[in-house]
């Protein structure tokens, strides 16, 4: 993130040299968009803090480590949909589960729903897209994640 902030500062500086007034207008715009979604961001943060308490990593480790294929697939999709986890936590966790013998298919369901299905980001998404489109988009995403999981299962020879 250090590089991102550095690069942004450089770009901002160049923009400022190029056109002061334009840059200020852009910053005003940025501030306006940010302040508009601030309440939704707060709602998301509150939801995340509670859900992460209710579903800690070790719970996921426990359930995905000990269940069969079908149950694992359903549980993995559930955990992936209702939590938020940055990649640098999710993939090491999946690596541990892989070593414990959890199938690639179940892990694909977990990581792909984690990426694609966002119940916790609903407050923000629905602010921009409305409730209906947010629901449609997330249902489609869940279906895609399941197709991905089954495909992974097929290519890793876990379906037979």
């Amino acid at each position: 993130m250090y590089y991102l902030n550095l690069a942004t500062a450089v770009v901002l500086f160049i923009s400022f040299l190029g056109d002061r007034r334009k840059t200020m207008a852009g910053m005003k715009m940025a501030l306006k968009i940010l302040s508009n979604i601030l309440p939704a961001l707060l709602t998301m943060l509150i939801a995340i803090s509670i859900v992460l308490y209710l579903i800690p990593d070790r719970l996921i480790l426990h359930y995905l480590g000990d269940s069969g294929r079908m149950v694992g697939l359903i549980l993995a999709s559930f955990f992936g949909s209702v939590t938020i986890m940055p990649g640098f936590i999710a993939f090491p966790l999946s690596g541990i589960l892989l070593q414990k013998g959890v199938s690639y298919m179940v892990l694909a369901a977990f990581t792909t729903t984690l990426m694609m299905v966002g119940i916790l980001t609903y407050p923000i998404e629905s602010k921009y897209f409305g409730a209906k489109v947010t629901v449609i988009r997330n249902v489609i995403s869940l279906l895609i994640a399941l197709i991905v999981a089954v495909s992974i299962g097929y290519f890793f020879g876990e379906l037979s």
Partner: peptide
Amino acid sequence: FVLIGLFEVW
């Protein structure tokens, strides 16, 4: 958001 703002004007 700074980048979004710059995108808006440039």
